[in-house]
């Protein structure tokens, strides 16, 4: 991916900023400017809460180029509490731990880098909800 492509999507990727439809109130992620529910234009920014649950998952032992450093890791489809399904890595979790239905929360982590001399890529991942007293 070109540096400019990373740069253009930084808001959605750092902080899970999507869109909300002004016509039917559907929450949209990733942002696409057209509401998938009613087909009208939807360009208003929406900050997702980051909370959701694991819908499905798979563990990768042979990671693609640029991601080897963090293997093995688990990629999940996460159903956000606002509705959309998002594909992302799970983090702060052991390979044997994930379960369908597990409550997770968004964190911003290092996704990889463009080689030793390239930029560092940051973006959303999900972790088991932090237990608080």
């Amino acid at each position: 991916m070109e540096i400019t492509s990373h740069w253009r999507i930084k808001k959605q990727r750092y902080a899970l900023v999507g869109e909300v439809c002004p016509h039917c109130s559907a929450k949209i992620f990733p942002p696409r400017d057209i509401c998938p529910e009613c087909g009208d234009e939807a360009k208003d920014h929406y900050q997702f809460s980051g909370r959701g649950e694991v819908y499905s998952y798979t563990t990768l032992y042979n990671a693609p180029a640029g991601y080897e450093e963090q293997a093995p890791y688990t990629v999940a489809m996460v159903q956000l509490e606002e509705g959309p399904l998002v594909t992302a890595q799970l983090t702060d979790i052991d390979v044997k731990e994930p379960e369908v239905g597990m409550p997770v929360e968004m964190v911003t982590r290092k996704l990889g880098s463009e080689g030793d001399r390239g930029i560092l890529i940051y973006g959303y991942k999900f972790r088991p909800v932090l237990e608080t007293a």
Binding site: Q70, Q89, K110, L120, K125
Partner: peptide, 9 residues
């Protein structure tokens, strides 16, 4: 820190 953590995250 874990593999995907640094001072930025």
């Amino acid at each position: 820190a874990g593999l995907d953590e640094d001072v930025i995250t």
